[in-house]
């Protein structure tokens, strides 16, 4: 064997061995359990906290509002559609107040006239002209029972 190879081949072998050993230690434990990925990452994603808690959790405290909501047209909505995610509020209701929106703009997100909205799906009004004497929708309508009009 030529002297060049006598030097190069062991160098190459050492290089490959170092690579294989390093590789052994660098691959995460759960890698390849189900496929070419770190199986533990699924558990890590699954362990993230849920921010939207759902109607049932809201009803534990706000049963009167929920009962009213369920009795009317908005019964299909969860509380968090309008009030936002409730996880922090549930932990500390005093500190983390949820929003109580009821402006023309907010209700208009669903109910403003738009040619792309089907009248069969959603009741629409023109938020710019509809009963402009009052500033906000909730000045007349009770959002939990929309046809229960205020004075």
């Amino acid at each position: 064997m030529p002297p060049q190879l006598k030097t190069l081949l062991p160098v190459l072998a050492v290089f490959i061995c170092i690579f294989l050993v390093a590789r052994h230690f660098l691959i995460p434990d759960s890698f390849g359990k189900y496929g070419h990925y770190r199986a533990n990452s699924m558990d890590e994603i699954a362990a993230l906290p849920a921010h939207h808690i759902g109607k049932a959790a809201c009803m534990d405290c706000h049963d009167t509002e929920a009962a009213k909501l369920n009795s009317d047209l908005h019964s299909g909505l969860t509380c968090e559609v309008c009030h936002g995610p409730g996880w922090q509020h549930m932990d500390d209701p005093e500190k983390n107040k949820l929003s109580k929106p009821g402006t023309r703009e907010f209700c208009g997100k669903c109910h403003d006239m738009n040619p792309a909205r089907r009248t069969s799906v959603i009741h629409q009004i023109d938020i710019k002209t509809h009963n402009i004497d009052r500033a906000n929708c909730i000045d007349c309508h009770n959002p939990h029972a929309v046809w229960e009009m205020k004075d």
Binding site: P2, P3, Q4, L5, K6, T7, L8, V11
Partner: peptide, 18 residues
């Protein structure tokens, strides 16, 4: 040189070949 200091014609021919 990686310690390969052999300069015999045979080794140099190997350089060329490899």
């Amino acid at each position: 040189t990686l310690g390969v200091t052999d300069l015999s014609p045979k080794t140099i021919a190997w350089d060329e070949k490899l």
